[in-house]
Design a protein around this nucleic acid. Structure first.
Lengths: 113, 113
DNA sequence: GTTGTATATGCCTTGACAGGAATATTTCTC
DNA sequence: GAGAAATATTCCTGTCAAGGCATATACAAC
């Protein structure tokens, strides 16, 4: 999981992933669109491939890179476990607790958890 | 966005975030549970705070750190834009297109995009 | 096979960052 | 106010990764 984050933490790699969201692209195409030197594009793509975020398919001399669904879905599933944090229902509950806390000086339910 | 990734790319910071999912914790508590030295915990928490992933509330000498909903929701929203990649419907459509491609030699719809 | 195009790899330098240890700061207790 | 507890900050060192540049490899067309 942290490997995925590390891969996406690099701004240019992030841009590459965003570009690939529109579909597969060959290396040179990526370089031109994002104004990156070819070697750096290849290196970034290697990193993305090593963590499983992309796959390659050769087409003549070209190498066409494509986003992989699986790691992104796992990523999404992981984030789902945090949903309670921003769900409206939870937020309201949180407000309620804060209110009670102010008025009645009860212990915060999170105390020492 | 990439700042969030960078923050979560560090394994110990990731563990801290996972721990905080269960609710707010003071620094020392985090250190003991994750077997980390106190200075490192403080440093990691500072990074998490700088990118907006956590907030602090003082309680006597303790500093209680808590996850923030907003960046996690934004994170989630960003990932939603990739949903098409793993949605079953899309996968089926993809298979269909591949099938047509093999049989009829039509152009791949992604070609040269 | 030679040339041209597309991509990958290697080397080098530089900057960023994590952990360890020591120290400073804040707040509580008495 | 003195000492203790909890946390933050600083300095140091080693490691790792990114970009620039040169070069190697793969495939194509003739």
């Amino acid at each position: 999981m942290t490997e995925i984050f590390a891969a996406l933490a690099e701004p240019n790699r992030f841009r590459i992933v965003e570009l690939l969201r529109s579909g597969p692209h060959p290396v040179n195409d990526i370089g031109k669109r994002l104004r990156l030197n070819q070697p750096q594009v290849s290196k970034h793509l290697r990193v993305l491939k090593n963590v499983g975020l992309v796959t390659v398919k050769p087409r003549a001399q070209e190498r066409v890179y494509e986003l992989r669904a699986k790691p992104l879905k796992e990523f999404h599933d992981w984030l789902e476990r945090y949903r309670q944090l921003w769900d409206a229902r939870f937020a309201e509950l949180d407000e309620l607790v804060v209110g009670l806390h102010k008025k009645e000086k009860i212990n915060d339910r999170r105390k020492r958890n």
